[in-house]
Design a protein around this nucleic acid. Structure first.
Length: 434
DNA sequence: CTGTGTTTATCCCGGC
DNA sequence: GCCGGGATAAACACAG
């Protein structure tokens, strides 16, 4: 799959932007981020050009001086880094296109330790989980401790209800309906927690799909191979959600976090240290005294590998901020990264939401009404009966898609073709018109 | 057998 | 304290 410079930069900027947003003391992070980002872009583009000499790349895209001038402190006044980019380049960035992949994961695998989810950084506060205490603090902002993201920290359960997660998956698909396996895949791809958690969360997803009236099962066509049906969202309930019927997710019990149920004797030392760190920072009060289950993937991690993992991967890094004073830190962060501001800036043309979503999970936490409104108004959720008529064969392309759902796609075989659904821009989703 | 879908029960938490 | 929403767990049925 071709990865042009535009898509590359889009992802890198988005990823670094989210890192900065989630960086607790990130007021002056951007210059550092920009330097690193510029190096990344140049390096990647060079490699790209070596691989594909036929492609041309806008030099302006690698000029990140605008980014170095950006300060998080000024974010609320200036808008996003993207707005600054526009200011410098006097026009909409060309790398913004609605054909963008539906997740930043394609270019930024979780293993890279970047933040994929522009969700509000309330996840850590939500579950009161901190990263392994003994882990090194690899950060995106020099030696500053990094706020941990629910998307990159396997200890932090996302602050979203399962219904929300399902909605997010549905939205990201740009498809009228999605399969259960797609929902699984999307959640796992976007939230590291669910990669390492045991599969009980999948039961919860199924439970939610069945129980929640928002979700409608669309039977698979008889001639279609495969198991199960498709799931879509009822616009009627989306409307209800729009009217405020949906509440924000309450603080979640921590009992579901499998890493917190690990019997000490089964846990390799770095993880155990992390577990102890977790329990020593106030988590124990919330933790359930249930028996431990060690996620299979973690069971097989040798101490050495685990040590390497925790020392190299920011997702396992520790953050002293995520402890007693975490709420206040996150509160301030939430203010900086307030999604309403994000939307307002998008309405003002300062921020193209295409960059933030729906390619990736939206900051849902604070403005679910808004985002659910987007569902109500989105063409993504169609009449299931009508949708079923338009259902395309999922099998071969879907298998490919599920194996690499966020892989970069050429326009010629764009996501729309693959997904069989209409492309929904964020302008449509959020109805940003006056 | 595995994945999917449904149902029931229980617990936790926040709001009232 | 009660109630509702959400999470978790489990059992069961069904289809491929």
């Amino acid at each position: 799959m071709a990865l042009d410079g535009a898509a590359l930069l889009r992802r890198l900027v988005a990823a670094r932007w989210m890192e900065a947003m989630l960086c607790g003391s990130s007021a002056d992070c951007w210059p550092e981020i920009a330097v690193g980002l510029e190096e990344e872009v140049v390096t990647a583009v060079t490699q790209k050009e070596m691989q594909d000499s036929g492609s041309c790349f806008d030099d302006s895209l690698t000029n990140l001086q605008w980014l170095q001038e950006f300060s998080i402190v000024d974010a609320q006044e200036q808008g996003s880094p993207l707005s600054l980019w526009r200011h410098h380049h006097q026009g909409p960035p060309q790398f913004l296109n609605p054909e963008a992949p539906t997740s930043p994961l394609a270019g930024e695998p979780a293993s890279a330790g970047t933040f994929h989810t522009p969700g509000t950084p309330t996840a850590a506060a939500y579950s009161r989980v901190s990263a392994p205490r003994g882990a090194s603090a690899a950060t995106a902002c020099g030696d500053r401790p990094t706020q941990l993201s629910c998307s990159t920290n396997p200890y932090v359960k996302p602050p979203y209800s399962y219904a929300t997660l399902i909605c997010m998956a549905m939205q990201s698909s740009n498809k009228p309906q999605v399969s259960l396996s797609y929902i699984y895949k999307w959640i796992q791809e976007n939230f590291l927690y669910f990669r390492y958690a045991d599969s009980t969360w999948q039961n919860s997803v199924r439970h939610n799909l069945s129980l929640n009236k928002c979700f409608i099962r669309v039977p698979r066509q008889k001639h279609e191979p495969g198991k199960g049906g498709y799931w879509t969202m009822d616009p009627q309930y989306a409307e209800q959600l729009l009217s405020g019927a949906v509440r924000r997710h309450r603080s979640a019990p921590v009992r579901g976090n499998p890493t917190l149920r690990l019997p000490a004797k089964q846990v390799s030392q770095p993880l155990l240290q992390g577990f102890q760190g977790v329990t020593e920072t106030g988590l124990s009060a919330n933790a359930q005294p249930t028996g431990g289950k060690l996620p299979e993937r973690l069971k097989n991690i040798s101490p050495a590998a685990c040590k390497a993992l925790t020392s190299q991967d920011p997702q396992f890094s520790t953050s002293p901020l995520l402890s007693a004073d975490e709420p206040s830190e996150l509160g301030s962060l939430r203010g900086v990264f307030d999604s309403d501001d994000l939307l307002r800036s998008g309405m003002g043309g300062d921020l193209s939401l295409d960059m933030v979503a729906p390619q990736s999970p939206i900051p849902w936490e604070e403005e679910q009404e808004v985002t659910y409104a987007s569902f109500a108004q989105s063409s993504t959720f169609l009449d299931p009966l009508q949708s079923s008529l338009d259902l395309e064969d999922e099998t071969p392309p879907a298998q490919m898609f599920l194996q690499s759902p966020w892989a970069e796609r050429d326009d010629s075989e764009g996501v729309n073709d693959l997904l069989g659904g209409p492309a929904v821009s964020l302008d449509q989703l959020f109805d940003l018109g006056e």
